[in-house]
Computed example of a mutant assay.
Amino acid sequence: MSFHQPQRIAEIAVESGMRKAHLPLVNMLVLGFLGGAFIAFGYLLDIRVVAGLPPEWGTLASLLGAAVFPLGLILLIIAGGELLTGNMMAVSIAWFSRKVTTRLLIKNWFWITISNFLGSIFVAYLFGHVAGFTETEPYLSSTIAFAQGKISPGFWGSLISGIGCNWLVGLAVWLSYGADDIGGKILAIWFPVMGFVAIGFQHVVANMFVIPAAIFAGYFDWTDFILNFIAVFIGNAIGGAIFVGMVYWIPYIWNTKSKVVGEGQVFQFKQLKTKQ
């Protein structure tokens, strides 16, 4: 199972960010809708697995739910889709490399946010509310508990949790760039995503599913959702753009004039040419 070295992953990430930023609007909307729906499917699967498990299982129940949640990002990366949290890393590293303008970055984030929301809320309403997959017991209790767990920490708690989440999700996307085969990409995605879910970090697109699902069931309100969205969006942006995008841009793109020793040879990486 071959994989790329971090230097090459950084270059692939920049190339991916450039492609994402230059997608036509229709493509952004369609692929963003799919991205939101796929993440919602992962969360719905999580709820259906953990609901009704005996309390004696303790955190094992959380681990089981976390183990199936990565379905969403696996579908997105392999089948195709656009996800805000992944773009917060990929488009940002292209922006740091001056391959993408600020206007294109904002445009991408804006439209992917809208389309991810539409995909997430579509699954929440159609499958959760109309079909009742989140509104019959024991699934309703789990849905409410999940939503309450997202809203309860307040602004700063949600923001900091969002940083941790997209640090790991950004790394999941980053690692997926390091694999050329489907099996390698699945393994690369699965561990970081499982980790953030098991820890309990907050993902802005996942919250677009679970909080509205609880609202459709008659719990909480849209003010709760909006306040949570703002906090988690900011946290996810910091986690993806700064803790992954910028942190890896510095050694692998910006400062690539330094010599690197590996396998008995000395390599000289050339500084990438940048254009605004």
Rank of each mutant, 00 (worst) to 15 (best):
M1N: 10
H4E: 12
Q5A: 13
P6V: 09
R8P: 01
A10S: 11
E11I: 07
I12N: 13
A13W: 00
G17E: 03
G17F: 04
R19L: 05
R19Q: 08
H22T: 10
P24V: 07
L25H: 12
V26H: 12
L29R: 00
G32W: 06
F33S: 08
F33A: 04
F33K: 01
L34T: 12
G35N: 07
G36R: 00
G36D: 02
G36Q: 01
A37S: 08
F38M: 06
G42H: 01
D46C: 11
R48I: 13
R48Q: 15
V49C: 02
V49S: 04
A51P: 07
G58V: 05
T59P: 13
L60I: 09
A61V: 11
A61F: 03
L63C: 12
L64F: 15
L64D: 13
L64G: 12
G65F: 01
A66G: 15
L73G: 06
I77V: 15
G80F: 04
E82A: 09
L84S: 01
I93K: 03
I93D: 03
A94I: 07
F96D: 07
S97R: 06
K99Q: 15
T101P: 03
L105S: 05
I106L: 13
K107P: 02
I114G: 05
F117Q: 08
L118S: 12
G119D: 05
S120F: 04
S120W: 05
I121R: 06
I121P: 01
A124I: 08
H129E: 15
H129N: 15
G132H: 07
F133E: 12
T134P: 03
E135T: 14
T136K: 11
E137P: 09
I144G: 00
I151H: 02
P153M: 05
W156M: 11
G162R: 01
G162H: 04
I163Y: 07
V169Q: 07
V169L: 11
L171Y: 02
A172S: 10
A172P: 09
A172H: 00
W174H: 07
S176R: 02
G178A: 10
A179P: 06
I182C: 10
G183D: 11
G184C: 12
G184A: 12
K185V: 00
A188H: 04
I189Y: 10
W190E: 15
F191V: 14
G195M: 09
V197P: 14
I199E: 02
V205S: 01
V205N: 04
A206T: 13
V210T: 13
I211K: 00
P212R: 06
F216H: 05
Y219A: 03
F225A: 02
F225G: 00
I226C: 03
A231W: 10
A237G: 05
I238P: 00
V247S: 09
Y248K: 10
Y248G: 06
I250S: 04
I250T: 08
P251E: 03
N255E: 08
K259C: 01
Q265W: 10
F267L: 13
Q268P: 11
L272M: 14
